[in-house]
């Protein structure tokens, strides 16, 4: 009965990221897409928040969006999983509902 939360805005610009994290339930998943991938960057001001969310929720980052912004697997926080578009679709179908934070 878990929820997939997508976040498509940078936490430096909008509150979509923090609002999503504030409304997670254990077992939910978070997928960072578009400018949202910025929030997955390790060592950033928001990395700590995401790392603590990762203790009870799965964190995913859309790889094409990450690559487009000059980042890759080594640039994101520990425990974040990279997915491609197919993986995005799988996440949508394996969760009860999707909440698109924007």
């Amino acid at each position: 009965m878990s929820t997939l939360h997508t976040v498509n805005k940078s936490p430096f610009e909008r509150s979509a990221f923090s609002s999503a994290l504030n409304h997670l339930k254990p077992g939910d998943a978070v997928l960072m897409i578009e400018d949202g991938v910025v929030g997955a960057r390790k060592g950033s001001a928001f990395a700590g928040l995401l790392e603590s969310a990762a203790k009870s929720c799965a964190i995913y980052v859309l790889e094409p969006d990450l690559a487009a912004r000059g980042m890759g697997e080594t640039d994101v926080i520990q425990g974040a999983n990279l997915v491609d578009y197919g993986g995005f679709v799988d996440l949508v179908t394996t969760h009860q509902r999707t909440q698109a934070w924007l």
Partner: peptide
């Protein structure tokens, strides 16, 4: 509360954010 709202959202079939 935030926690109550989280629960209510988790019971929905469809969530549409604006």
């Amino acid at each position: 509360s935030r926690m109550e709202l989280t629960e209510v959202m988790a019971q929905q079939d469809v969530l549409l954010n604006f």
